[in-house]
Design a protein around this nucleic acid. Structure first.
Lengths: 145, 145
DNA sequence: TCCTATATGCCAAAATATGACAAAATCTGC
DNA sequence: GCAGATTTTGTCATATTTTGGCATATAGGA
């Protein structure tokens, strides 16, 4: 499972290396070094290809011209890109995504079970306080655990 | 699958190159460099020929005198045109379509699984905020995922 | 038929992505 | 705390993609 936080720097042309722990998981558990990166709220969202394809196959069954489908897919698929890790475990993040999320010098990788997020470091730091508050609030909503 | 966003500039006479990633998919998966381009909401909608034909055959099954069918088909089929990519992977967009959609300097290609959209960049940027809101809303509607 | 506007083909420059290598930084076991 | 191993980062060369320019072809309108 993806877990924990790692801060990495990102080069001028958008290259950034995936944490070694995450790479190992991709190798061992998913036997693949392909991930799909898309946008979410204020951060990138990355899935191992197999996990992502589960999502896509569900989307293919949706009525393709219905407004909700289009809005959903235009955002989630329209911002997605497939990345192969290179020989040193790096990926490229497209100019569009970097611009949207205001990626500057460093980014934070946040592991979340079957996926991980990528945040601009500054924004991540800024949200730390409110993140804690949101966590406190969420505790009361989550009855299943 | 078509995924992600690419910004390309469009020449004065309406020539624009299809993103390399999309071209590769056309080659590898569809073994064809023919696409069908039609109009959609504020943007163009493009399908590989095979996908377009699937769509057409589904339409043939619709009740052909029903008002919704006629309205739907008249718009989607009536605006469609077939394009071959040239040797550098470019297509031409007719003056009529460019005028309708107000295509100026740059356009954005948005991959959506079996098809892709083409937007005027300015308009796409203007809609980014509301696009995110629509995505947030649609998440609640799409309970399969 | 000729003229104009648009479409097409070809070439090459500019911009961008990719791959390989090595230096720097960090982690690990002792 | 140290030595060796691993990980992360920076740099440069190369390949690919995108763009612009120009010449030619084609079609439609006067």
């Amino acid at each position: 499972m993806f877990r924990g936080q790692y801060v990495h720097s990102i080069s001028d042309n958008g290259r950034v290396s995936i944490p070694a722990k995450f790479r190992e998981l991709l190798n061992v558990k998913y036997s693949s070094n392909t991930i799909i990166v898309s946008m979410f709220e204020n951060c990138l969202l990355a899935y191992p290809k197999i996990e992502w394809e589960k999502l896509e196959s569900k989307m293919l069954d949706l009525p393709s011209f219905k407004k909700e489908t289009v809005d959903f897919e235009r955002y989630l698929i329209g911002n997605a890109s497939e990345c192969q890790l290179d020989s040193e475990g790096r990926i490229n993040i497209s100019p569009v995504l970097r611009k949207n999320l205001n990626f500057k010098k460093s980014v934070v990788f946040v592991g979340i079970l079957t996926r991980f997020e990528i945040w601009d470091e500054k924004l991540w730091e800024k949200n730390r306080e409110s993140g804690f508050k949101k966590f406190q609030k969420s505790r009361d909503q989550i009855d299943e655990i």
